[in-house]
Design a protein around this nucleic acid. Structure first.
Length: 550
DNA sequence: CCGACCGGCGCC
DNA sequence: AAAGGGCGCCGGTCGG
């Protein structure tokens, strides 16, 4: 087993507190702030788990000093999970500074000092919080699952910091070439590039609206209606349906203006430095347990500019994504043998067709998406009775989650992440008055249904996030073992996007990386679903540019 | 003047 | 009767 060392800031020094298995303190060492990287690196020679208030407050500086750690407990993220988990007793987390832990936010400063002057984290006691969390897990209804979730969440925090540290290789010259080919050379500040300028002229002329700013939805809507078009908003999808000679230029303008605003030259200047796109990944940033990002729109890098993500000379990207993660997770967590059978195929939707459950792949896909999102309209809704007969446990699980949400109840993922308690007026009245359906007004009823769709999706999206956390955690350690030397010289993760990872690796190791990515996926499946036979096949590509994957 | 919000759209 | 989940981020707009 590993040792447990809790780090806390104190003045100019760090207190390193060695903890026994039962949480009692075995010894305390004071480490000068400047000596911390060497201290941590020295202790990493033997298995150790670091306990600290918040990975974003400790790990970036260690990485900058060239120190990688194998495992940690992130008290901030663990607290957030435990306080909402139906598996745990919230009373066991109560303490004077519980509100402080509730409110503790991650830090994103690119060049943060190790010890910022005024940090709310410094008013919290990590020793006491660690003891409370241990007690809460020990007393939980499913301690093993929660333990796994907290370990995976904490490991994700390490991955996130390492990905920010490494950055995604990004070629400014390639990106600029893409921009220039699409819109012409970069204009002076405040002006539109030539292609957009030309399109604005065409749009103003077509709709007889001199001075129109097409970036203003209000102005644009009035101009369209003034031209006699029946339209209620300015969404591209709706504009596409219209028959008017000005529409193609308008759609082209919207597409290019969007790219320029979100991922144009100013994006490059802000987010790409020294050949790397650096943004902050935010583990646990979404209520379901998915990651969010901070800065640069990292989770929505459009396909248009992905050709600029190019591996270094002598290096390659290994890009891997899970085919149909969420329906596979649903099969596993519900123990639905028929759906797991369909999931044995590389293409789960084709598996559903081959087993005779549905007629076409398109039906399978739209039906499953409807089941997981709560769609009831159109073809997806019509598929539901058939899917329910064929996959009663899988469909039953999401239906139950929807009904529970509509009753104002909390639902949870496989490992115990709980959904938020609803706060809308509908939920309070339902509890207080026990209203019958016919007594509810239609707005409250819409909100109730919307919350049911949220809880329906929560259990699947959230358990999917748990699968990917386990995948990332295992992959991270496998990649470390493939190489030698500092993190940046070994194969390492550089990007993560819900069900897809990008590994930057020396070329000669790319096949090994591809194998490890698959092994890690198999490990994640076993961790979550034990022996239940549900497969998680990956699409894996070894490429020079991210754009060449998939 | 600045912050909050909105319409719209990129990703999964 | 109607009924699609989760994000981040842009420019525009509006209210304090």
């Amino acid at each position: 087993m590993h040792r447990v060392v809790l780090l806390r800031r104190g003045g100019d020094a760090v207190e390193a507190r060695e903890l026994a298995d039962d949480g009692t303190t075995v010894g305390v060492t004071s480490v000068a702030a400047g000596e911390l990287p060497a201290f941590v690196a020295g202790r990493e020679a033997e298995p150790v788990r670091w306990v600290w208030d918040d990975t974003t407050r400790w790990y970036p500086a260690l990485l900058d000093a060239g120190v990688r750690v194998e495992r940690c407990t992130d008290l901030r993220l663990s607290h957030a999970v435990l306080r909402r988990s139906p598996f745990a007793d919230p009373a066991l987390l109560a303490g004077d500074d519980a509100a402080g832990w509730d409110a503790l936010a991650p830090v994103f400063a690119a060049d943060q000092a190790l010890f910022p002057l005024e940090d709310p984290a410094d008013r919290l006691d990590p020793v006491a919080e660690h003891a409370r969390q241990r007690a809460a897990v020990d007393a939980a209804t499913h301690p093993g699952r929660l333990e796994l979730l907290l370990a995976a969440e904490s490991s994700g925090a390490l991955v996130a910091a390492e990905m920010t540290h490494a950055g995604l290789p990004w070629r400014t010259d390639v990106h600029e070439r893409i921009l220039t080919e699409l819109v012409g050379p970069r204009p002076a500040a405040g002006l539109r590039p030539p292609v957009l300028e030309r399109l604005v002229g065409e749009i103003r002329e077509s709709f007889r609206a001199p001075g129109l700013n097409p970036d203003s939805p209000g102005e644009l809507l009035r101009a369209l209606q003034g031209a006699g078009l029946q339209v209620e908003d300015t969404r591209s999808w709706n504009l596409q349906q219209l028959d008017h000679p000005g529409i193609p230029a308008l759609l082209e303008y919207k597409k290019l203006a969007r790219l320029l605003a979100a991922h144009g030259w100013s994006w490059l200047e802000t987010w790409v430095r020294e050949g790397r796109f650096r943004s902050f990944f935010v583990p646990g940033g979404v209520v379901t347990g998915r990651w969010a990002s901070n800065g640069g729109g990292a989770l929505s890098v459009p396909a248009q500019i992905r050709p600029a993500a190019i591996a270094d000379d002598g290096w390659r990207f290994v890009v891997a994504d899970v085919a149909q993660l969420e329906p596979r997770v649903l099969a596993g967590m519900s123990g639905d043998a028929a759906m797991a059978e369909a999931a044995r195929a590389a293409d789960l939707y084709q598996g559903m067709v081959d087993s005779g459950a549905v007629n076409t792949r398109a039906e399978a896909k739209i039906g499953m998406l409807s089941a997981m999102y709560g769609g009831t309209r159109g073809e997806g809704g019509r598929m539901m009775p058939r899917l329910t007969r064929r996959y009663p446990r899988a469909i039953g699980l999401v239906e139950d989650a929807a009904r529970a949400g509509e009753r104002g109840e909390v639902v949870h993922t496989l490992l115990g992440r709980g959904s938020p308690v609803p706060t809308g007026a509908w939920a309070e009245r339902a509890v207080a008055l026990g209203e019958a359906p016919e007594e509810r007004d239609s707005r409250a009823e819409r909100e109730r249904r919307a919350w049911g769709r949220f809880t329906r999706n929560f259990v699947v999206q959230g358990t999917g996030a748990e699968w990917t956390l386990c995948w990332l955690a295992d992959l991270r350690n496998r990649l470390w073992r493939l190489g030698s030397g500092p993190l940046a010289e070994r194969p390492h993760l550089v990007f993560f996007l819900h069900d897809e990872v990008v590994v930057h690796t020396p070329e000669h190791l790319s096949d090994d990386v591809a194998a490890e990515v698959r092994h890690a996926a198999a490990t994640a499946g076993r961790l979550l679903f034990g022996g239940f036979p549900v497969d998680f096949p990956l699409d894996v590509a070894v490429v020079g540019s991210w754009a060449d994957a998939g």
